[in-house]
Design a protein around this nucleic acid. Structure first.
Length: 791
DNA sequence: GCGATCAGCT
DNA sequence: CACAGCTGATCGC
């Protein structure tokens, strides 16, 4: 493995852009000359033919805002609230029109929600010291991070008689460290473009080489670490579940055994037992009847003698005793007070989780495990009773066709409170399974097929091996999971999440949490906010989140299950150098990397965001003296904010946003200063932030143009997307399109990693196993992507 | 009538 | 091609 960064690779893209004459912002003269030519495209490119031809329908369309996302063809209802109109406005405006004054700009006296910014713990990481110990005898290198005294020093035992080298992150950051810390202080997202651009010039390159020198020792260490975990290309695409091995716990008081491998799993939480057993099941393909036939459920392993431990007889424990009596039976009378205070009744008791116990004050490991074990028994018994009363066939038919692990799932039953609810989604899935034969409509059959497929196949990149967790898997809601992580608030990741969600807890960043609450209506008590750069424990598994540098609130999540095989899920991310300086990422030793492979192809080697931002700034700057030019900057629901915020900052101009956009921006942790860059008064700015699809076609742009016919004579639109740097557009940093008085730039502003960034990240993480999460249509495409990354 | 979901579209 | 999203139609409750 090479060092954390390769200066040449990093700067290649940056150097590309300024010299591209093709992509240089046109001067005012160029824009003006455009005005004299009324004909269609002046600057055609190979894919021009794909653009829709302008039609005459536009003029006759119903009233809707110039930036309405609806096409003129489909817009039927006049929903106008502002020039932007449309559903987007109604969605949020419906909730907040009263406190949004569309006629005025951003009134500083208006109470604006100002969410606290994410804790800037990356800074802390920069300061964390690194202790590097080197063994002359074994050649083994161990890097351990001292941070918050939470460091696990267990591994240090592996090294003895070592020459200790103490170094700090400084060795890696050098002169840049100060800059980085200052930048971080300004919040994670919006760094000074000026500072960044300075870095992107020669100074940056020189500094990079310097760093490279200084880091050579660290590079060597990392390289050696990498060699310990050599990548086995053959195994890269293997089913991640199969790679999990059963833990052979050596516990002389073994209370509960895995029914498959025989390992003592009494130390694991209920969910972890479920995970363990599921994995054994997947691995060994043990006949399921071993489990299901055993209605009198015990934790006996096949061929094993049941442990006769006194505290594991559920029937003894239950005895219709009240909670206090139950506690006393467990020898945990000292917790009576807590349980009484928290009003834990018998039903509540059965739904308690490890986190609950922690939060009410049962923090000691021993009692906690004892209680959990016993609760598990209680649940099991309740489930048995329920199953005996119910029509078993019905349940079996629902599960028919699912993997054997489904049956094991029932073995380690979910909390009672959750099972009691029959969720809409589950009902839908059950219906889908039942009603195939009685739906004559072709479309219904199709839909049902899709649904039953959905209920079966959870993509490998949504399940975290070794844990009971799912990531961005709301399309695959199932009752066998109660921990649902959401990496960021983009539709393709939260799809399936509705306000009727009742499958457990949602884990996400604070920004995402606000949006999930605001836009979907998920109540706060179903959301757990995850801190950044701080290890926490969820259901017995260490979880650490990092800023993914994708959209605001996006996370990279590190899972460290008890089996020692760490899983790093990138969600959607754009690699940046700061990631390589993160001490936790440097040392966690990733086994499985679930990777955002959106641009996993060498053709996608677009420039750094800073360079693109600078291009847009310069383009606007050259023309802003002309008050009859309207600038449009495309944006997603969330995403691409940095572009227009930096434009506003550099030009010291406000940008116009819609009310709905404002309500979203208010969730994103902008500073008061940054919020001042936005205005709801379209008269106040000639720079407008609009939904991306407004810029998608000239048809729509022409509609905008017509709406502003009196006020603006030229429209310059910036469509920021990584796809502008794709097939047929090689080595171009973007493309320019023109139709009459409308100019559209497709600028390669990407919030996903470029191909070279992906490679660099993979080198840095050095995982044993890679699972592509995008464009992964099966083993073939998956292994193709992986080999490209390792090439 | 409403929410959820899908196909079709950009 | 398809980032991430919008729309109307349809279905079930």
């Amino acid at each position: 493995m090479a060092g954390p960064s390769n200066p040449k690779t990093l700067n290649k893209a940056l150097l590309l852009l300024p010299s591209q004459s093709h992509f240089k912002p046109k001067s005012s003269a160029s824009f003006s000359s455009a005005l004299t030519n009324d004909d269609d495209f002046q600057d055609p490119s190979p894919s021009q033919a794909r653009l829709p031809k302008p039609t005459s329908k536009i003029a006759s369309s119903k009233p809707f805002g110039p930036y309405n996302s609806a096409s003129p063809r489909t817009s039927k209802k006049p929903k106008q609230h502002s020039p932007y109109g449309g559903k987007e406005n109604l969605d949020v405006a419906g909730k907040c029109t009263e406190d949004l004054d569309l006629g005025h700009g951003l009134d500083s006296s208006r109470p604006t929600k100002k969410p606290k910014q994410q804790p800037v713990s990356a800074e802390k990481d920069c300061l964390a010291s690194v202790v590097v110990e080197k063994s002359d005898e074994t050649g083994k290198i161990l890097t351990s991070i001292q941070q918050n005294s939470e460091t696990d020093f267990e591994d240090l035992d592996l090294c003895h008689g070592l020459d200790s080298i103490e170094s700090t992150i400084d060795c890696c950051s050098g002169a840049q460290r100060t800059t980085n810390q200052e930048e971080l202080k300004r919040g994670y997202l919006f760094k000074s473009i000026e500072a960044r651009l300075l870095n992107s010039n020669g100074g940056f390159e020189e500094r990079k080489e310097e760093e490279s020198e200084q880091c050579s020792e660290l590079d060597l260490l990392l390289k050696l670490c990498g060699e310990e975990d050599e990548v086995d290309v053959d195994s890269l695409t293997a089913d991640s579940h199969r790679q999990e091995e059963c833990l052979g716990l050596d516990n002389e008081y073994g209370l509960i055994c895995c029914p498959l491998c025989g390992a003592d799993i009494s130390d694991l939480s209920g969910e972890m037992r479920q995970v363990h057993t599921n994995e054994c099941l997947d691995k060994e393909e043990t006949p399921t009847d071993v489990i299901t036939a055993n209605n009198d459920v015990s934790f006996q392993c096949p061929g094993q003698v049941l442990n006769d431990s006194p505290c594991q007889s559920p029937k003894d424990v239950v005895l219709v005793s009240p909670v206090v009596e139950w506690l006393r039976n467990l020898g945990l009378a000292k917790y009576e007070e807590i349980f009484v205070r928290e009003e834990v009744d018998w039903d509540t008791l059965k739904s308690l989780t490890e986190e609950d116990l922690f939060s009410i004050g049962v923090t000691a490991l021993g009692p906690r495990k004892k209680i959990l074990n016993s609760i598990l028994e209680l649940r099991k018994e309740t489930a048995e009773e329920k199953v005996a009363r119910q029509d078993v066939k019905k349940i079996v038919s629902v599960d028919a066709g699912t993997k054997p692990s489904k049956l094991i799932t029932d073995y380690f039953i979910c909390p009672v409170s959750e099972r009691k609810k029959v969720c809409a989604t589950d009902r839908a899935q059950m219906d889908a399974g039942r009603s195939c034969s009685n739906t004559p409509c072709k479309r219904n059959q199709k839909r049902n097929l899709a649904k039953s497929a959905k209920s079966k196949d959870i993509p490998v990149w949504c399940s975290i091996p070794g844990t009971p967790f799912r990531v961005d898997a709301f399309k695959y809601l199932r009752r066998d999971c109660s921990h649902w992580f959401l990496s960021h608030f983009h539709l393709d990741h939260y799809q399936g999440l509705t306000k009727s969600f009742c499958h457990g807890k949602i884990y996400c960043s604070s920004i995402t949490a606000k949006l999930v609450n605001l836009k979907i209506g998920i109540p706060w008590d179903m959301i757990q906010v995850l801190p950044i750069n701080q290890k926490i424990n969820i259901a017995g598994i260490d979880v650490t989140c990092f800023d993914a540098n994708h959209c605001p609130g996006s996370l990279i999540i590190l899972f460290e299950p008890p089996n020692g095989k760490a899983v790093l899920h990138t969600g959607d991310f754009r690699f940046c150098e700061e990631m390589t300086r993160n001490s936790i990422l440097q040392t966690c030793g990733v086994h499985t990397l679930i990777l955002d492979t959106t641009y996993c192809d060498p053709q996608y080697d677009f420039p750094k965001q800073e360079a693109v931002i600078q291009f847009v700034i310069e383009s606007i700057q050259t023309e802003t003296f002309n008050s009859k030019t309207l600038f449009l900057i495309g944006s997603y629901t969330i995403g691409k904010e940095r572009l227009f915020v930096e434009v506003a900052r550099a030009l010291q101009k406000k940008v116009y946003i819609t009310a709905s956009k404002l309500s979203i921006l208010e969730c994103l942790g902008f500073t008061r200063e940054e919020m001042q860059f936005f205005t709801l008064n379209e008269q106040e700015s000639q720079i407008h932030v609009v939904p991306m699809w407004t810029l998608a076609s000239f048809k729509r742009l022409k509609y905008v143009s017509n709406q502003y016919a009196g006020r603006y004579s030229l429209i310059v639109a910036f469509s920021p997307t990584g796809w502008s740097f794709g097939k047929g557009k090689k080595k171009s940093t973007g493309s320019r399109w023109q139709q009459g008085t409308i100019i559209r730039y497709e600028v390669p502003y990407s919030e996903h990693s470029s191909f070279s960034e992906l490679k660099e990240f993979v080198k840095f993480v050095s995982p044993v196993n890679i699972i592509p999460s995008v464009n992964n249509h099966g083993p073939e495409s998956s292994s193709a992507m992986v080999s490209r990354l390792l090439d």
